[in-house]
Computed example of a mutant assay.
Amino acid sequence: MMKQFFFFTMLCLFGIQLQAQQLTYYDASCFPLLGKATQDTGARYERLPDSLKNISRPPLWNLSRNSAGMAIRFRSNSTRIALKWENLFNNHMNHMTDVGIKGLDLYCWEGNGQWRFVNSARPTGKTNQVTVIANMQPKEREYMLYLPLYDGLVSLSIGVDSLSSIDQPQINYPVCEKPIVFYGTSILQGGCASRPGMAHTNIISRRLNRECINLGFSGNGQLDLEVARVMAEVDASVFVLDFVPNASVEQMKERMETFYRIIRSKHPDTPVVFIEDPIFTHTFYDERIAKEVQRKNDTLKEILNRLKKENEKNIFFISSKKMLGEDGEATIDGIHFTDLGMMRYADLVCPIIKKAIK
């Protein structure tokens, strides 16, 4: 009899343990998505409207299908958060971590204006299933989940304890009204942050507690006018234009003012911030690149000075002189930023944006 009781008790305990291990998954499309300039996309996690599919240059269009800068907001009292996702391309690069390229980053709201990093969901392939955090106290928490920087998503689901709740966020953080819209290059897209939360637009979003829209296109921040038209449809607090690393002097002379005026025509009083080409660490040795950077930065200043002489208002200029620091340690390959570089960029840019918003 005692043996039967013991066996029954063990079965019950085993059943409780199994129940505690159960997860229920919810499609992330049920929850708010931050970081989109338009809702007219063919798929949820794309950045440009579907109408541009056969109009934009193919490399630009393909990059627009990366989910850079996007984040899901939700609330849960689960003791665990798990994720299932399928990447669109399953990209891989030799100078950026797979977590940054096609992984996910979970943050939790701690109050006092602070989002705290919880953990990353590290990808193992095109299709992934990961428990990001476990063994938490079962209390309500607000979460933000950053999406891949250099890949897109076919699907995404959030897993929580089967008996717990998962709901819409209760607080409007980051503030979604009048977002900050960024346009630029591979660095802006997030190259080469170690994980999605460390892309500088995401750092800036957390610091200012305001939604940021990332329209960075690796190697393709070439002042395509259709992108300016997409940006102009956003009721932004600030437009940040950081295209110089990709745009040639000829492209700047040909398109920069038109790109600016497309935005300005719909936002006559909104601040527009222009940022110089970074003084890349390898330019201290590569004289050809150093001259090219100088030529492009001179062209930027020349065009901005002309605009100001024409009484254009609310134009801000950020010099790149102190962007990367003086120790040469802020890039992965002499060009693309490490997390240190991303933090230094945010340190430089945040005060200017904050001033511009006021």
Score class of each variant (00 low, 15 high):
residue 1 M to Y: 03
residue 14 F to W: 13
residue 15 G to E: 06
residue 17 Q to H: 11
residue 20 A to Y: 15
residue 21 Q to D: 14
residue 28 A to G: 00
residue 29 S to W: 11
residue 32 P to R: 05
residue 33 L to C: 02
residue 35 G to L: 05
residue 36 K to F: 11
residue 38 T to E: 10
residue 44 R to C: 08
residue 55 I to C: 06
residue 59 P to R: 07
residue 62 N to W: 12
residue 63 L to Y: 07
residue 66 N to S: 06
residue 67 S to I: 06
residue 68 A to R: 12
residue 70 M to W: 00
residue 77 N to T: 05
residue 86 E to C: 11
residue 88 L to R: 13
residue 89 F to S: 12
residue 93 M to N: 13
residue 103 G to F: 01
residue 105 D to R: 03
residue 109 W to H: 04
residue 109 W to K: 07
residue 111 G to K: 10
residue 116 R to E: 14
residue 118 V to Y: 08
residue 120 S to H: 06
residue 122 R to L: 13
residue 122 R to M: 15
residue 123 P to L: 08
residue 126 K to H: 09
residue 132 V to F: 14
residue 143 Y to R: 10
residue 144 M to W: 03
residue 147 L to I: 04
residue 151 D to F: 03
residue 152 G to S: 09
residue 155 S to R: 07
residue 161 D to C: 04
residue 170 Q to Y: 10
residue 172 N to C: 12
residue 173 Y to E: 14
residue 176 C to V: 14
residue 180 I to D: 01
residue 181 V to E: 00
residue 184 G to P: 11
residue 186 S to E: 08
residue 193 A to R: 01
residue 193 A to P: 09
residue 200 H to P: 07
residue 201 T to N: 06
residue 204 I to N: 04
residue 204 I to D: 04
residue 213 I to N: 00
residue 216 G to C: 02
residue 222 Q to V: 15
residue 232 A to Q: 09
residue 234 V to H: 01
residue 236 A to D: 03
residue 241 L to K: 00
residue 253 K to P: 03
residue 257 E to M: 13
residue 260 Y to R: 03
residue 260 Y to S: 08
residue 268 P to L: 14
residue 274 F to Q: 01
residue 275 I to K: 08
residue 278 P to T: 09
residue 279 I to A: 09
residue 280 F to A: 13
residue 283 T to N: 06
residue 285 Y to W: 15
residue 289 I to G: 04
residue 294 Q to K: 14
residue 302 E to W: 05
residue 304 L to A: 10
residue 304 L to S: 07
residue 305 N to Q: 12
residue 306 R to Q: 15
residue 312 E to T: 08
residue 315 I to E: 02
residue 316 F to A: 02
residue 316 F to G: 04
residue 321 K to Q: 14
residue 325 G to S: 08
residue 330 A to S: 15
residue 330 A to W: 00
residue 331 T to W: 03
residue 331 T to V: 12
residue 341 G to I: 06
residue 342 M to F: 12
residue 344 R to Q: 12
residue 344 R to A: 05
